[in-house]
Design a protein around this nucleic acid. Structure first.
Lengths: 206, 206
DNA sequence: CCTTGTGAAAACTTTCACAGCT
DNA sequence: AGCTGTGAAAGTTTTCACAAGG
């Protein structure tokens, strides 16, 4: 393993990537930490240190090649191959995720969608068939799945989590408010909307 | 203003609230920081310091009254009245938010849903009518809106953000990857799904 | 005895100041 | 106004160690 990326930097990387893709589409080739810092509202040195950690290819007097920076960030996201993702729970959020076309550009393939509602199984959402959750393990044996996105009701979230871990999934995006137990066999990121609303509300009064 | 809540603590409060509601429903009345720390996988002293900041009503040898803790957290979320929320963008995510019944329990009222798609305006999702974005300002003049949730396409997000700020909204939950400029007139929390996937992917390789 | 609360140490993150080079 | 990289300082968060109270 190379140098470990601090958590604080990881949180800012999507911001950098989004910004770099935006200015790349404007045909800009080179950018300096100062410009990025101004545009993103961050500290100049913080950006410099972050970019040095991410890429280490800054050139004095010049700045950073945007193409290079983007490639270096992508190397952090998927070391060699694209990442395979499945979604468990074909409700509104699951459907929105499958329909969203933006993941592909960033190297994420949504390979499967699972639900336990018999009336949904067999139907297709944008070319992705809804499979029974019972087939999850079999599916993951055939396809190496890197990330599972849980959008089922909270009450079955841990059960789904267990199945994902059994299927060797390495990362879980958890849309429920259920605290998931993985015995450190997978990394979980919680994206419960209510939690964000609560944090926002507290910040407003703070 | 009382004591300012550190950002790190704010991030954990939803976790505590969710946990406390769960054990309250099991008719447990009192809990210690040690138990909470074990169940949530946090440090014992960290929980003690957090609860002391949140409530300051811990009793040596006893622990914390769960009802009291929940009330103290709720006081941080909504000082006196429930918080009024509107959703801008009646796509899949906007619809899922309006249909979700869990916000109400936590003191958030979704009062309105807005979109600029003429074919959607006038339709109802779960008793909430879809209004034109042009009516946003008028609506906010009649109802004090605390939080706006942006689920429109990225390209129009800043425009919507400007309208929200003009309407005196204090907090924005931004589902797009567009970096929003608020001139510090509102607090923004970004919940772009792609960003979470990217952070998760990097953590997996870290 | 248990559990809270807290000053101090340790760890982590951001900012400052400046050397040096595409 | 040139920009990066970095040691050191400052600020924040977590952990340690222990006093005190029901």
């Amino acid at each position: 393993m190379e140098k470990k990326m601090p958590k604080s930097v990881i949180e800012r990387i999507p911001l950098y990537l989004n910004y770099l893709e935006k200015i790349k589409s404007q045909n800009i080739k080179v950018v300096s930490s100062k410009i990025i810092a101004e545009d993103l509202g961050l500290g100049e040195v913080q950006v410099r240190k972050d970019l040095n950690l991410i890429s280490g290819n800054g050139k004095p007097k010049i700045g950073h090649q945007i193409d290079e920076l983007i490639k270096d960030i992508e190397k952090l996201i998927f070391k060699e191959k694209k990442l395979n993702v499945i979604v468990i729970g074909a409700g509104k959020i699951g459907e929105a995720l499958v329909r969203y076309k933006g993941f592909d550009q960033h190297g994420f393939n949504i390979l499967g969608l699972f639900d336990n509602d018999i009336t949904k199984i067999g139907k297709k959402i944008d070319d992705i068939e809804i499979n029974s959750i019972d087939e999850l393990k079999t599916f993951c044996d055939k396809n190496i799945i890197d990330i599972g996105i849980i959008t089922v009701p909270s009450s079955t979230a841990q059960e789904v989590c267990d199945k994902l871990i059994e299927s060797k999934v390495k990362g879980i995006l958890n849309f429920t408010n259920q605290k998931l137990n993985t015995n450190n066999l997978a990394i979980v990121r919680n994206v419960d909307i209510t939690s964000f609303l609560i944090m926002l509300a507290i910040e407003i009064n703070n």
